[in-house]
């Protein structure tokens, strides 16, 4: 017992000495680096144009019934736009470790290997890849799948945000879920932004004629909640603010970034709300 006490005292003395010395002699424990302007600013540098070098290509032919069967893709007029007489091309393609190519197919995710072979179907549209090749999908619950397809965890951001933020149900109004989006940060955290709207029935003038009124659900309150989970599915944060603008570039995880074709990678998809919470 006495020996242990002396050991603790000795450790404290050594620690106090080190901290004191570090204050007197800056840089004793950590090198103090003064940033130079040329190290932190890249403004005004000469830019030379260079070609991109292709490494490999994956070609995945549409199957007879379309990418996943059912609806045929008839080609496209513009990336991301619906095609007359057919369906829209896939909205989302995410490349993960392996590499694995995850393609959205009518709200679900189809996975392909680099040879273009179909390797699996997951529920929900692809959000991004987390550590160890785990795939995050959204559509219904937010899910994380292991590389072998096992559901590691699933959460319900809308329901959790309502509870945590204390959004009260009222008899005179209806709470609905609006647009929902998510991305996986490079550290593996999963950010989910969900629109919460309160609708109230209001009497409005009908366009059918003067003096004719009707009832309509009108949004009286709406906000974006940001719910963040760590890679293990544990709730890390829940705010009344949506995903900050600084993080608005959708990210698909350490190995990929999401984009919505048609709007390139400069913005998330439209935030148009839908009563059913789908996209």
């Amino acid at each position: 017992m006495r020996k242990r006490t002396w050991t603790v005292v000795l450790c404290l003395v050594v620690l106090a000495g080190a901290v004191g010395a570090a204050r007197v002699i800056p840089g004793l424990l950590n090198a103090v680096v003064e940033p130079r302007a040329e190290d932190v600013s890249f403004v005004g540098l000469p830019v030379e144009e260079a070609p991109l070098n292709p490494v490999w290509q994956l070609f995945q032919a549409w199957s007879k019934g379309g990418l996943g069967g059912g609806v045929k893709y008839l080609g496209m007029l513009e990336v991301g736009m619906p095609v007359p007489g057919g369906a829209a091309p896939p909205d989302l393609v995410v490349v993960g470790p392996g590499p694995t190519v995850a393609v959205e197919d009518r709200g679900n995710t189809r996975l392909y290997d680099i040879q273009g072979r179909f390797t699996g179907l997951r529920q929900g549209r692809p959000v991004g890849f987390g550590p160890d090749g785990a795939l995050v999908t959204l559509g219904g619950p937010l899910r994380m799948y292991s590389a072998s397809g096992e559901v590691l965890w699933e959460r319900e951001p809308y329901r959790e945000a309502k509870t945590i933020l204390g959004v009260a149900e009222e008899t005179a109004s209806e709470l609905v879920q609006g647009f929902e989006s998510a991305f996986v940060s490079p550290s593996g955290d999963v950010y989910c932004s969900v629109r919460i709207e309160r609708l109230r029935k209001q009497t409005v003038l009908s366009p059918e004629g003067p003096g004719i009124t009707g009832e309509q659900w009108v949004p009286v309150e709406a906000f974006d909640a940001c719910v963040v989970y760590d890679a293990a599915g544990k709730l890390v944060r829940c705010d009344r603010e949506g995903i900050p603008d600084s993080l608005s570039l959708p990210r698909g995880g350490p190995h990929s970034e999401l984009v919505c074709p048609g709007v390139a990678c400069t913005a998330t998809a439209s935030s148009t709300s839908k009563r059913d919470g789908s996209r």
């Binding site: 991109l52 490494v55 290509q57 994956l58 070609f59 990336v79 393609v93 490349v95 990929s256 970034e257």
Partner: peptide, 22 residues
């Protein structure tokens, strides 16, 4: 459509006959 830390970016091109990821 993505990038990795090894210095690669990934692109997709939708063609009438299929999808090309590069």
């Amino acid at each position: 459509t993505g990038a990795d830390a090894e210095g690669h970016i990934y692109t997709m091109r939708v063609r009438e006959d299929g999808l090309v990821v590069t």
